[in-house]
Amino acid sequence: MFKRNNTITAALCGAVLFCGLPLTVQAAPVEKAFASTYQPVAAVSSGQAQVVYYRTGQPGQANGSAHVYVDREFHTGLLPGGFTAFCVAPGDHTLGAYLNDAPQYQGKSTDMYRAEFLGGKTYFLRSDSGSNGAPQVVSRMDAERELAGSRMQVHALSRASAVESCRYQQGATYKDYTLSGDVLFAFGKSGYQDITSGGYAAVRELISQLNSDNAQPKRIQVIGHTDPFGSEASNQVLGLKRAQTVRRLLLDGGLPASVVSATSAGSHEPVTEDCYGSKSEQVQCNAPNRRVVVRVETPEQL
């Protein structure tokens, strides 16, 4: 998909970069740099191509920003654990994410990486320390596993004129089925051998409901959610393990492996937050947060 263009523009942007965007990107407080956590993006119309560009790492790591350029124009600065989603017209575009960009600001002065984007397609691109400049193309399943817990980058305004608001396909929809974590697992457990009898029954009922709905899913994402007890990292792992276990049960029930993926939101998306009292009271209050959501994308409204 990507190819190197040996023609590199010699002139650097110089004084035109006085706007100070890189300084703004790097100095933005973490709590103001991010918005909502990643949710699966819907399909776009045939008149657009969609790009989900993300940076690996934990939100808040102070490694500086990776400046994202689209057709030589600044779009955003990705901090570790951040992502941006945008659309462009189908066709030829240049883009990249550059770490330690100052003072040359390569994305404004070079056309080193060029891609042909097809209408109606969504592309997942990753930036990390090993891909300075060149985006890494990632499959949707792998990308959304890495995007679990990532948050939308919101602290910089896009200057890229090629970036458009996305127009999503009519009729594509999502439906969420929520399974209680306390029904599925004992407290703190996550393995296949830890599923309760009630958990097996709940998953069988869900599979039966999907079959009766004649959903014919295009994609199913199993999302593990935890309560706030424990560290952010441990909750992320626990949520993923629970999602992977439920995914295995769905496959056991006959759903095709090619459309079912597992990811974790950890404790980032609570449905209840005001829990007080003793530890046991807080555990009980946080029960709604311990859940596994099975998100089904279908071509028609269920």
Rank of each mutant, 00 (worst) to 15 (best):
Q153Y: 05
F86Q: 00
L23H: 12
S161F: 02
H268A: 15
D274M: 11
A262H: 01
S46H: 14
R114W: 05
H67D: 10
L238Q: 01
A186G: 14
V30W: 03
V68T: 12
G224V: 07
L210V: 14
D176Y: 06
Q106L: 14
T9I: 08
E144C: 03
V154W: 01
N286P: 04
V41D: 09
P217L: 05
F86H: 00
Y200I: 10
G14Y: 04
L238I: 05
A15W: 10
R72G: 00
Q170G: 15
H225E: 09
I207K: 03
R145Q: 12
S197L: 13
K108S: 12
Q39V: 15
Y53F: 04
I195M: 13
S234R: 12
Y276K: 15
D182F: 02
A43Q: 15
V294R: 04
L79D: 00
P256T: 01
D71R: 13
G81V: 08
R290K: 10
P288K: 05
Q169Y: 08
A265G: 11
Q50T: 00
D194M: 12
N132I: 09
K108F: 09
L79T: 02
Q170F: 12
E205Y: 13
R145P: 06
R204Q: 15
A172V: 15
Y177V: 05
E297S: 08
Y113K: 03
V260I: 13
Q48S: 03
T272Q: 08
K121E: 10
A10S: 10
T24W: 07
C19A: 14
A202I: 01
V296L: 13
V246W: 08
Q236P: 03
P217H: 04
G191V: 08
A156R: 05
A28F: 08
G133W: 14
Q61V: 02
F2N: 01
A11C: 06
A265E: 12
E205K: 11
H67V: 09
Y174K: 09
N63K: 07
S264T: 01
P256K: 05
G171P: 09
V246R: 06
V154I: 13
